[in-house]
């Protein structure tokens, strides 16, 4: 076992881990943050998306020891008010992909300049959803961007 210290959702966190542990399991099973979901365990579906030093990553592919000293944000850190446009536009149905979608969506809303070089659909392509056909998600993120631009 090794000791892992990092910043989790803005607060210091320390946890004993096995060097082989995935960040996803440490968050869910050791730290009780079950908002982050496992959809595939191989970096395809994006349900386990968290921000690592401010960038979206699949936490199932991150060995936990790699976040030593880093900043990790999970879905539990998001402001519910910021998620309202996603709710209104039907971006969530069954909800299993939703925390990952929310993490990607909020990241895009926080970095609107990226839309100069990437389309919204391209930026959301790492989050698989089987319920919505994505239109509700795309509309929700667009509405959140529009609200951000007005603010």
């Amino acid at each position: 076992m090794i000791t892992l210290a990092f910043t989790l959702n803005g607060a210091p966190a320390t946890v004993e881990i096995d060097p082989a542990d995935r960040l996803l399991d440490v968050l869910r099973e050791r730290l009780g943050l079950t908002g982050t979901k496992e959809g595939c365990g191989e970096g395809e579906c994006g349900a386990c998306t968290v921000w690592l030093d401010g960038l979206p990553v699949n936490s199932c592919l991150v060995p936990a020891y790699q976040v030593r000293g880093a900043r990790v944000h999970t879905v539990e850190s998001l402001d519910p008010a910021a998620l309202e446009p996603l709710l209104v536009h039907g971006a969530t149905q069954c909800g299993a992909c939703t925390p990952g979608v929310a993490m990607t969506a909020c990241w895009i809303v926080g970095h609107p300049e990226i839309l100069a070089s990437h389309s919204l659909r391209e930026l959301l392509a790492g989050n698989l959803c089987r319920c919505t056909g994505y239109d509700g998600i795309v509309a929700g993120v667009q509405a959140a961007l529009d609200a951000g631009a007005r603010a």
């Binding site: 908002g35 979901k37 909800g95 929310a102």
Partner: peptide, 20 residues
């Protein structure tokens, strides 16, 4: 709006693998 929608968006909804 979806009654349980915000719980899903914020990760508060607990699925079987999330139950304590």
């Amino acid at each position: 709006h979806r009654r349980e929608g915000l719980a899903k968006l914020t990760g508060r909804e607990r699925y079987v693998d999330d139950l304590p």
